[in-house]
């Protein structure tokens, strides 16, 4: 690690961060530590889009498939005509498929979030450096990344 710039005031911290980006320091080498969420940092250092969306997509798609497969296969293995409708009637099966899409999508997204943020292990998320209420900019060495 090349060095940590420590600030007590948010404005000075943001000013320095903007200056670093303006001076051409690669964004991927800049790391910041703040005592609370600072939305301006997101604008100065836009993050790479999270991969958690793929978990959501996979979960939702598997929920849809499971919902239709579950209802269709159950109806086919126990074929009873209800209300004169065909054995495989998609309109009512759509409700089960929709519910499982939401359920699997939500559970899969949550699992993806835990996995990608290295939760629930606190060792994976707790920073070894402790700065209290200070705003910190760490410019990492090129070799370290």
């Amino acid at each position: 690690m090349a060095g940590a710039l420590i600030f007590q005031e948010k404005e000075k911290f943001l000013e320095r961060l903007r200056a670093l980006v303006r001076d051409g320091v690669p964004r991927e080498r800049i790391r910041v530590v703040t005592p609370f969420g600072v939305p301006e940092v997101e604008e100065i250092l836009p993050r790479k889009r999270s991969n958690v969306r793929f978990f959501a997509l996979f979960g939702a798609a598997s929920g849809t498939v499971t919902g239709f497969a579950f209802t269709i296969l159950t109806s086919l293995s126990w074929p009873i005509i209800v209300g004169g409708k065909p054995i495989v009637s998609l309109p009512p099966f759509l409700i089960i498929a929709f519910a499982l899409t939401i359920l699997f999508g939500a559970l899969s997204t949550f699992a993806g979030f835990l996995l990608l943020s290295r939760l629930p292990s606190p060792r994976g998320i707790r920073s070894e450096e402790e700065y209290g209420n200070a705003f910190v900019i760490v410019v990492e060495d090129g070799e370290q990344r």
């Binding site: 209300g83 409708k85 309109p91």
Partner: peptide
């Protein structure tokens, strides 16, 4: 739309 359609379709 689906709530209306399903009710009519199922009730027949």
């Amino acid at each position: 739309f689906f709530a209306q359609f399903l009710t009519i379709w199922y009730g027949n």
